[in-house]
Design a protein around this nucleic acid. Sequence first.
DNA 1: ACGGTAGGTCTACGTTGTAAACTTGTCAAC
DNA 2: GTTGACAAGTTTACAACGTAGACCTACCGT
Lengths: 227, 227
Amino acid sequence: MTPTSTQTTKRLDPAQLATSALRLADAEGLEALTIRRLAQLHDVTPMAIYRHFADKDDLLAAVGDRILADIALPEPTDEPWEAQLHAVLAAFVAALRPHPKVAGLTLYRILICPEGLAMGERTMELLTQGGFSVDDAAEVGRQSLCGLITLVTTEPGANEDTDPIAREDALRAKRASLSALSPHRYPLITSAADTLICPASTDRYYALGINLAVAGIRGVLADLKDS
Amino acid sequence: MTPTSTQTTKRLDPAQLATSALRLADAEGLEALTIRRLAQLHDVTPMAIYRHFADKDDLLAAVGDRILADIALPEPTDEPWEAQLHAVLAAFVAALRPHPKVAGLTLYRILICPEGLAMGERTMELLTQGGFSVDDAAEVGRQSLCGLITLVTTEPGANEDTDPIAREDALRAKRASLSALSPHRYPLITSAADTLICPASTDRYYALGINLAVAGIRGVLADLKDS
DNA sequence: ACGGTAGGTCTACGTTGTAAACTTGTCAAC
DNA sequence: GTTGACAAGTTTACAACGTAGACCTACCGT
């Protein structure tokens, strides 16, 4: 008999709305995530949504937060800071990977929602521990995390095209466009066409992206220490 | 008397359309770049645009190409590959920087328009010269270039808000949101708040971003050579 | 002189986000 | 109990968007 258990009036829950919005966007792309579609999924009038979200941006923010909430931040260990940083970044990527079409929504939410803040703080902790000044840690951390978001949103195959037929078409078109190139003028691009269109292994793709970020941080740190 | 000089009928030029579309988007943001607005700028009916572009995506692609066309690729020198790569990436960023609000349009055009292809080929050239396999060069190059695009699109201050009053408001809101945080729970984030909101120097921001990319590449190369 | 065509116009449709005014089920207080 | 008050959902409406389709019309090659 709690007020949330049995109701005669319909009841929408912002959290449930955000999750089903996320599901919808995952399945059919961000452009399919429309107030009307979401309302329809809950057998409700479009305007009902606005009782729980100020406007569409507010809804998208909630979806972003929903994604960030899944970050499973690793516990601090006694490993060197670089290894721990790697683990934190990997955890971030792992949370984003299931949602390549909408991972971009997290960009402006990291410094707002608690899980994002926790990750940001932990990242800066490790960076300062490694030798960065607080301000440098802020800039380096910011850029690295942004880069990882991009890594996910530009994951080959993250494109729309829910049904495999259109997807296959898009792939073929891309392949055709690349194979139409002159191998004389663009020898390397044409010979790497397959990799450029779709990397051999997605896991490897992500592993490389994270390594690139960590290696960049280490390298920049060395440069800064010199000067 | 060339057919393009004097005309009684109005004449639209796709290239001019793309440039004024870019100007519009630069000034007021991507969401202000609408078929109707663009048509109005040329004293023409909205549908006239469609005589020159298949649809809006086609127009956006042209805008992306327009940006990439400004890449001033440096001549090959006898410097080490890393220095030359740095110069190429810097040239890329320099082309994007004037257009932070729309730089994302270049993402899917690099491997299509000639200037993008030239840069891609040159990048892969330098990477293979450094010791990467062709496939690794493709993946590393792809991720680095994507990362640099993100660097520009997430440049603090790239937000919309054409007039300085709304811009100042947004900044204040962000500052407030960060300074509302508990310095006890988030000591590093709160103490770096200013830097996180807006880095001290934009030039430094970009220099750091490019260095991060190059250092990452060098580091990953070393890792690959070990195994 | 004349037909074809490239370029621009007009009208119209469906979809989107959302403002404003309404209904209605629920609960606290008298 | 009756009575507001309020939170949640509905209804209606509007402006702006991308764009399809039918039209006009000035130009150019023959």
